[in-house]
Design a binder for these strands. Structure first.
Lengths: 150, 150
DNA sequence: ACGCTATTGTAGCCAAGGCTACATGGAGGT
DNA sequence: ACCTCCATGTAGCCTTGGCTACAATAGCGT
């Protein structure tokens, strides 16, 4: 848990304006912590839907990392109760994992559709959506949905 | 019957579709690498404009991290030629650093204005902008500018 | 001039997320 | 049966980015 408590910085002068900025940076960093989980959950759900199972190698290819990275990430997700790893068999999502995957997939879809509606070329939209989706708050997501449906 | 016939070497199916997805993930990760630099450059430029100098402690308060984290980050940015650290005096931006700060500031402003124009509440917009700005490609940024000016 | 305090800097710990190199497991082909 | 090849797994290293605890400066006030 990063940023639990702050240091005793003096904060002289009219620094309060900056303090809330610090909060925003904190949020951004905290959000980053969940990105991996969302990406993996989504990729796993996708692979299961597409190929019937999610194997380590397929995940690695899909996410663009080495199989070692996948294995370690899965161990973490497993500790976190999002996935169940069946050695040499594949990976399954727990109930929580499926919920996370569904949320991520939905958000991804909305962001992508939104960018397209904005007039961003398909290729770029797909790349940007990958980076943006993890930082879109519920309020902004709703605004995007409104815009798309408009 | 999990992965009945698509398991072997073939594993075919739409793997090319996944390959490009891997590329997208790669881009997102690469972009993440520059986030720190942009955040610091922007914060430093801001502090210099506001207070006349950018000190380590002020930066730490501003970014919401400990002064130690700032010091280490500055060392890296210095190696990268973005800042010049004057021990016990403050930090200055190099030409490249100023350019980066300007770009970051501009993008930040556009994203924020865009979110506001979309109808996102100010508070949320400010938080989201912090997370989103680093993942907005030039094409998407232009689309956002068009939308705001509309 | 001297010491106190806040700012800076150093040492060292932790987790995440990358990697390569090497070790095992499992299944198909001969 | 066995051999080989690919998928998995393990060991160990690197960087980034957090942190606390402690050491060293600088600059101010007395």
């Amino acid at each position: 848990m990063p940023g639990a408590k702050r240091s005793r910085t003096t904060n002289s002068g009219p620094r309060w304006a900056l303090a809330s900025q610090a909060e925003r940076f904190r949020s951004a960093r905290a959000a980053h912590a969940d990105e991996t989980a969302e990406d993996y959950a989504e990729a796993i759900a996708d692979l299961i839907a597409r190929e019937g199972s999610a194997r380590v190698t397929a995940l690695a290819a899909c996410l663009g990392v080495s199989h070692v990275t996948v294995i370690r990430a899965l161990a973490r997700l497993s500790r976190g109760g999002l996935v169940v790893v069946m050695p040499y068999k594949g990976v399954a999502l727990t109930r929580a994992g499926r919920a996370l995957a569904a949320r991520a997939k939905h958000r991804h879809g909305v962001v992508l559709a939104f960018l397209r509606a904005l007039g961003v070329p398909a290729r770029v939209a797909e790349t940007d959506a990958e980076g943006l989706e993890h930082h879109v708050s519920p309020a902004t997501l709703r605004a995007m949905e409104r815009f798309v449906k408009r």
